[in-house]
Write a protein that binds this DNA or RNA. Structure first.
Lengths: 180, 180
DNA sequence: GTCTATACGGGGATAGAC
DNA sequence: GTCTATCCCCGTATAGAC
């Protein structure tokens, strides 16, 4: 858990750069400028890039915990909730997941481990909601596919995902639900 | 289209590093070493990093064209083909797609454009095979989700995807198929 | 707590020998 | 066509003033 608000701002900026421009451009200086600091100013709060990454992973853990708790409170809408979250590029969790995925892809094992652990918990909730492991897997994978899709369409409105698509997908998944 | 075999080897090495270790570690020097060259030796064939990226995108185009053609030849197995391809980490196309996704995520618009174009063509084939746009979307997204899943589990055998999972997913998708 | 200035290392790219 | 040597830029990190 982060202690202060300044640290939080820095992580927010880091997540923004990481998710929007990738690891290469998410430098310490760029992150510092993004939240109105100098390089050294940022390094006072996070004394190294490793520390910054660790701070991000720590926040990721918190956001996932909160999201799993929220999703568990409305089991009947779990599928809709999961897919809608994956589609919401503006949500702090979704941005964070994208950012953490970038770190994981570059060899950060903690980030990868936390992402896997989150996936396991979301999956468990989907199994409960749908009553079928295979169908739950399909729902989970579709959600991850949505994230990927947003990733490669960034900015380029290309009409692949229309307005009603989310509901269509939910309907396909939920209508196959066996009696609970 | 690439002309020689040396260029191909270099692209292969670049794809390998990019997909396995991310953009950060896929440096020109690392790529050169990976295929037994020095930095300058590589730069003789691809005079800049931009040129290397462009070469990769060009190969991506070729691989997608070939794959779309192959998939179109067995429409009745299109779903199985697409999901199995997404799951095959060793396939040249899958490795290339992962590599190109890394470039796209870091702002390479050509890579993103080619990936989107491929997605559109695979989607069209899935619509044909399944007879339903929404179901085809679900199949496509599930395939992309599989890629993502492999991405964050790299090396860490974690049992989420078992042996029979692929067939389960195919069955779920194909059994919902309306009369063609 | 934040700044300027600086040291250090590494990646991209060029020059020139072989 | 491939190498060694070199240059420059930039990202990380530290020192020290305010």
């Amino acid at each position: 858990m982060t202690t202060g608000s300044k640290q939080d701002n820095i992580i927010d900026s880091y997540v923004a750069l990481l998710s929007e421009q990738g690891l290469h451009d998410a430098t310490i200086e760029a992150t510092a400028r993004h939240c109105g600091l100098s390089k050294a100013g940022l390094l006072h709060h996070f004394p190294s890039r490793q520390a910054l990454d660790a701070g991000l992973v720590s926040r990721l853990r918190t956001l996932i915990d909160d999201d799993v708790a929220a999703m568990a409170q409305a089991p009947e809408r779990a599928v809709h909730y999961y897919l809608a979250s994956s589609l919401d590029e503006a949500s702090p969790l979704e941005r964070m997941v994208v950012a953490a995925t970038r770190l994981a892809q570059s060899g950060n094992e903690e980030a990868a481990q936390v992402l896997r652990s989150g996936r396991d918990r979301w999956y468990a909730l989907l199994v409960e909601a749908l009553g079928d492991p295979a169908l739950a897997k399909l729902a989970l994978l579709a959600g991850d596919g949505l994230s990927y899709h947003l990733d490669i369409t960034r900015g380029a409105r290309d009409g692949f995902m229309g307005e009603g698509t989310l509901d269509e997908l939910v309907a396909l998944l939920v209508n196959r639900q066996p009696a609970a």
